[in-house]
C-alpha cells in the first residue's frame, strides 16, 4: 500500500505542531512561529486538495483543450491571498513583540503582563 495523501498528512502535522506552539508556549517569538506554521499547514492542505495529478493550470497557450486538462485555479488563488493575510498579521505581531521587548527585556507574555500590570497606566 502506498500513501497517496502525503501532503495532507504533512499539513496536519504542521498544523498540529504550530497550533500547540501558538496555544501553549509563553514565548512571543515561538507563538509567532507557531502561527506561521499553523497557517502554512492550512495552505498546504488547501493546495494539495486543489491539485489533480496530471492536469495543468488553466493558462491557455495552444488553444482551449477539454475541461479535464485543467485544475480549478481558485484554491491556488485562495492560498496566495491567505499568504498575504498571514504576512500582514505576522508583521503586526512582530512589531508589537519588538516594542514589548524593548520595554520589558523579556519575551514571556506572562512576565510582560505582570510587569505591565504593576505600572501605573
Amino acid at each position: 500500500m502506498s500513501l497517496t495523501n502525503l501532503e495532507e498528512l504533512t499539513a496536519i502535522a504542521l498544523f498540529g505542531i504550530g497550533f500547540t506552539l501558538l496555544l501553549l508556549d509563553r514565548n512571543l517569538i515561538k507563538k509567532i512561529l507557531g502561527f506561521s506554521m499553523t497557517d502554512s499547514g492550512i495552505y498546504l492542505f488547501l493546495a494539495a486538495r486543489g491539485y489533480v495529478a496530471g492536469r495543468t493550470a488553466p493558462i491557455v497557450t495552444e488553444g482551449v483543450q477539454a475541461v479535464e486538462a485543467y485544475v480549478n485555479p481558485i484554491p491556488a488563488g485562495l492560498v496566495l491571498t491567505g499568504i498575504v493575510v498571514s504576512v500582514a498579521s505576522t508583521a503586526v505581531m512582530l512589531a508589537l513583540t519588538f516594542r514589548l521587548y524593548r520595554s520589558y527585556h523579556t519575551l514571556n507574555l506572562d512576565e510582560i503582563t505582570n510587569l505591565a500590570g504593576k505600572e501605573a497606566d
Binding site: 501558538l22 507563538k31 508589537l96 520595554s103 510582560i112 505600572e119 497606566d121
Partner: peptide, 22 residues
C-alpha cells in the same frame, strides 16, 4: 500606549485573535 498595560493587552488580543483566525 508605547508601553504598559495597553501594549501588553494588545499582544494578548493578537494572540487570542491569531488562534481564532487559524
Amino acid at each position: 500606549s508605547t508601553r504598559g498595560r495597553g501594549l501588553a493587552s494588545a499582544a494578548r488580543y493578537m494572540v487570542m485573535n491569531l488562534i481564532a483566525s487559524a
